[in-house]
Amino acid sequence: MSDAVIVVALLLTAASATAAVAQRDPARQALVLSVLGSVLAVLFTVLQAPDVGLSQLAVGAALTPLLIMLSVRKVRRRGRTHDAAAKDGAR
């Protein structure tokens, strides 16, 4: 019985990781990475490693998405400012 839950967790991890790699846009990738983080934590739990699962949960649930989204916001802001400056310079 406990083998079945390990197989399910492993399949979910493989699917989420493949989906994360297949995304092209960083913001969408952050969403999939958040799901992957939680699924990984469950995988570590069913393999009887709760300490590692707790670490994964702590980092992957809120911290990693926040860092990625802040970087995306910074890059987009820079893009917008450069466009505005270019328009001003061209006038």
Partner: peptide
């Protein structure tokens, strides 16, 4: 149960980030 506690706390925080 500590793992479930942490997920219940930090999962919504992740959604708030997005």
């Amino acid at each position: 149960v500590d793992l479930a506690l942490l997920l219940a706390l930090l999962g919504p925080v992740g959604t708030l980030v997005f």
